[in-house]
Write a protein that binds this DNA or RNA. Structure first.
Lengths: 354, 354
DNA sequence: TATTATTTTGGAATCGATTCCAAAACAGAA
DNA sequence: TTCTGTTTTGGAATCGATTCCAAAATAATA
């Protein structure tokens, strides 16, 4: 027993009365080892609690069974951690591990981090941001297989996986339409970001699909999230024809919306239905009534990134045909709680009479 | 240029007209290299963009410049990610990297993970939980330097760093006392956890320090967080002598407290002051008025854990004197917003008249 | 049974750094 | 100039796995 970590393949070979090559073959489940020998070697390895040393293997094979997970700013948004979890779970399942680096939004550090990962011979890099956006990466990134999560590069020269914001916006709007709503307000943010633009686009597409003319009055772009939601309500609900439902670009905006609606004496969802976006548990699950919202596919993005690197990414040694790198959009599932449930009876009634 | 990663120390030696030993000495800033030679070697290395291979170094030196960061359940609580960030930043500063593993609360997987980290010759392990609690770890953990973050083992046989819950509870209560409050309610959770017990203990100690008799009526242990806070308000505010301030065991409870107080027509902080715990940004910063609360030292715990491993932990090879492993408690700083600010004028007046 | 094909085996060479030792170069003292 | 002590240097051995080749053992075929 004791420090079984000084036992080498040589020791195993000696104790088992075989050559090192045979032990190696057993270790890697290679063919051409007689069952008896294999069993014998396994027995000895178990006996002395042998564990092969990763560094030696990496040195010889040039493969490390490791992936780098680099983030620009890890902690800012809680739910973004799901990306790490998705990546970690997927990696572990395939006997890979994740080397984690957080660059604190520092380009120089980012470059150093990538270089350091190269030294460690990681077999791929995942670069993840904490909100959907365009990213800039140093050229060194092209020296190993890389994939982007929740972001993309302008030239689309790197594979990328992001949430399908348009689909999300569409789904949210459609949900409200299905509930019978015909005047649906959209409270957006004034910043131009993929999330904001995509969700609005989805909103418009859904209206179009239902033959409802787009009314610009029902869309407001506010500054801030919670504050913006709050202000948006005052704007939209004082319209001559106020909306009966509000789609908020994110859950924090919905939080402000709840406050303002309460001040106005309007009940959710009886007077106004509300749908958010992001499914930030702490907000969505704790608002009263519970906020119906859309889930960002963080876990799935992390898992996809790893699986892409491990199975689909062209290795640098054999580049394969020069296909453009995939730009994947993952759907945002709806999380039903209580805030959208307006006019349900009417809908049911109408459906039955069809 | 090109794939500079096939260049070895031999190549450098040849091109620089020196021996491999000399190159190695330059690489490691070892003494006994003439300045001229050193410069020459540096020049060649820069010229061909040489980078030493980590695996070879690890194999020879048995040191990997890597630490394992193992969590039981990474994503559940957003703010716990700060622990990772703290650890990562501290590690990077010392040219160490973090290998991340998430065991999904699976003991078997945890053991496998530790074994895998041993194979990779990490120089230490940080095991972090996402809330302050007791942890159970497999015996294998003793085979390398380990430290616990946000948790501890029953026998205290491993070094550990956790938030100082008592100090936090004390600080929160004292803040309210300073504001002039004399009847301070404490809304706790019914579960027995270090956080809950410690905060209540701090609450009691602060009262004692101010010579205020402890009134059991003012403490309520509710089920759930937000719901508990909500229920707690109805209980405490209907007392014959209701409290003028409420200390909530966490921010989510405070969220429920806000709801209930609003229903009762009580203004925060004019009628009732509120203090939370945890500083969950999404809640605390977005409640109206902003919630005064206590920050959990997650970042600091992560950083402390890494620095302990790197500088203070007894190496397994030279165990040193058998001192009991440190059990560190880090203070929880107050985050002032608006919800605590009651009676300030009176306090000022009284202070001046002292 | 002799011959050929196939499977199994042992062990030397290899991956790319560090480390150690002996030799060389240099400096200082007599 | 010679001798001694110190600094600098080159290079072989090493870390612990994999890989490849030739040899041995076994199986298949005639």
């Amino acid at each position: 027993m004791g420090s079984s970590h000084d036992i080498t393949i040589q020791d195993i070979a000696r104790r088992a009365g075989v050559g090192v090559g045979t032990v190696s073959r057993v270790l890697n489940d290679s063919p051409n080892v007689s069952p008896a020998t294999r069993a014998q070697v396994h027995r000895v390895m178990a006996e002395v609690n042998y564990r092969p040393k990763a560094a030696a293997k990496t040195l010889r094979t040039r493969r490390s069974s490791a992936l780098a997970f680099i983030t620009d700013e890890i902690a800012s948004t809680p739910y973004a951690v799901d990306t790490i979890r998705g990546a970690q779970d997927a990696a572990w399942q395939q006997n890979f591990i994740l080397l984690l680096v957080n660059t604190n939004n520092n380009q120089q550090l980012l470059e150093a981090a990538i270089a350091s990962m190269l030294d460690r011979q990681v077999e791929g890099v995942i670069f993840a941001t904490w909100y959907h956006r365009m990213a800039k990466l140093p050229a060194i990134i092209h020296r190993l297989p890389a994939v982007l999560a929740d972001c993309f590069v302008e030239e689309r020269s790197l594979p990328s996986v992001v949430p399908d914001e348009v689909q999300g916006g569409y789904a949210a709007t459609e949900l409200l339409l299905r509930q019978g709503h015909r005047r649906i307000g959209f409270i957006n943010n004034e910043q131009s970001q993929p999330a904001h633009e995509g969700r609005e686009q989805g909103y418009r597409q859904a209206l179009a699909a239902w033959d409802i003319p787009f009314d610009p009055e029902l869309v407001t772009c506010q500054f801030g999230a919670a504050e913006g939601g709050y202000a948006g309500v005052y704007l939209l609900m004082r319209l001559p024809h106020p909306p009966t439902a509000l789609f908020c670009f994110n859950d924090r905006a919905a939080m402000g919306v709840y406050d303002a609606l309460r001040e106005l004496g309007l009940a959710i969802p009886q007077d106004v239905a509300v749908v958010g976006f992001d499914n930030q548990e702490i907000i969505a699950a704790h608002l009263r009534p519970g906020l119906t919202t859309l889930q960002l596919p963080h876990y799935a993005m992390g898992a996809w990134a790893v699986n892409y690197l491990l199975h689909e990414a062209p290795s640098l040694s054999s580049p394969g045909p020069a296909v453009p790198p995939p730009q994947i959009k993952l759907t945002c599932p709806i999380v039903l709680r209580a805030s959208h449930a307006w006019l349900r009876e009417e809908v049911v009634a109408r459906t039955e009479s069809d």
